[in-house]
Amino acid sequence: MNLFNRLRGATQPSSRETAKRRLQLVLVHDRSQISPGLIEIIKDEIIAVISKHVDIDRDGVQVQFTQADRESRLVADIPLLDGRKNRR
């Protein structure tokens, strides 16, 4: 947010910042040709495969894109459940 907006007492980001953020998000999907819906499917399948072998925190699983310049990357973050607490 620029100084001008601060002085005005604006609390929401400028439309310029919003435009940039929205573009960055939409282009990640455009470039990879993977829709947000497909990511959900990938996420569910990853959970199914991994949880066959280890206990994971299903609600904490995150699958997302990262990008630098024109390179996109799919990053999966899969939290494991604490083995001691869950030992039956």
């Binding site: 947010m1 620029n2 001008f4 907006n5 400028s14 439309s15 435009a19 940039k20 282009l27």
Partner: peptide, 18 residues
């Protein structure tokens, strides 16, 4: 508009398109 924070600046467009 850019100064007012209501238009993408050239630097924003370049960041995005690289």
């Amino acid at each position: 508009l850019v100064q007012r924070g209501d238009m993408l600046d050239t630097s924003d467009v370049l960041d995005i398109l690289a």
